[in-house]
Amino acid sequence: MNESAVKKIAVLTSGGDAPGMNAALRAVVRTANHYHIECFGVREGYNGLIHDDFTKMGPRSVKNIITEGGTILKSARSLEFKTKEGRKKAYDNLVKRGIDALVCIGGDGTFTGAKIFNEEFGIKVIGVPGTIDNDIFGTDNTIGYDTALNTAMEAIDKIRDTATSHNRVFFVEVMGRDAGFIALNSGIATGAIDILIPERKDSIDELFATFERAEKAGKSSSIVV
């Protein structure tokens, strides 16, 4: 099948929602319309593929969603899609509707599922990196990462006021799962005294030594991310 043979596509959002997913969805739907490709939205990610929860989409379907957070298609994590039987149900539903290709907006888990799905059934798949974790290879910034980073920075800046007022040390935990991008860059940007990330193993002794050096330097409050 050549690229011009693609006449119908389906698009889904999967895994944790990320700021910008709706904007990405809008772009997919409007681009499909421009090239006269029929587009279906799949509700609740891979669960929707398995349970045949499709909805026809066009430019009116994505009107005024570009600034909305979350995803209008909803999102979910699918244990059933991790099984061969679940993926076969999903494939059968795509075949039943004559869908030629699938666009998956999500993170590492979404991409892993899409890769396996493609290898097993040969369905054309495009992955759009939408995750605040920024843990997708091949892109500088995933959709949602910049917003998450700035949100963390704003929160840390506010917490610092209380830390300074009460001479306290605050530990700020941010999201990112096994990737330390949010922690590292928000910590650097806000002047954290130490940054603890999954990619590097830090000991309690090293952390205490950092506090001792700060105290000797006259620092009375600190932020650790």
Rank of each mutant, 00 (worst) to 15 (best):
H51Q: 10
H51L: 09
D52C: 04
D53F: 01
D53K: 05
F54T: 07
F54L: 07
T55M: 09
T55E: 12
M57E: 01
P59S: 08
S61V: 02
S61A: 03
V62M: 02
I65N: 01
I65W: 02
I66M: 10
I66G: 01
T67H: 07
E68M: 12
E68L: 11
G70F: 03
I72V: 09
L73S: 01
L73N: 02
K74T: 09
R77F: 07
R77D: 08
R77K: 14
E80R: 05
K82S: 08
K82V: 09
T83C: 01
A90Q: 07
N93H: 11
L94P: 04
K96F: 07
G98H: 14
I99S: 10
I99E: 10
I99Q: 11
I99L: 13
D100S: 14
D100I: 14
V103I: 15
C104T: 15
C104Q: 13
C104R: 12
I105P: 05
I105G: 08
G107I: 10
D108T: 08
D108N: 14
T110W: 13
T110P: 09
F111H: 14
T112C: 14
G113C: 14
G113R: 07
G113A: 15
I116K: 10
I116C: 09
E119I: 08
F121G: 04
G122Y: 11
G122H: 10
I123W: 10
I123F: 08
V125C: 15
V125H: 14
G127P: 04
V128G: 04
V128R: 04
G130T: 08
T131P: 04
T131N: 10
I132N: 04
N134R: 03
N134C: 03
I136T: 06
I136K: 01
I136R: 02
F137Y: 07
D140A: 08
N141L: 12
I143R: 06
I143N: 04
I143G: 04
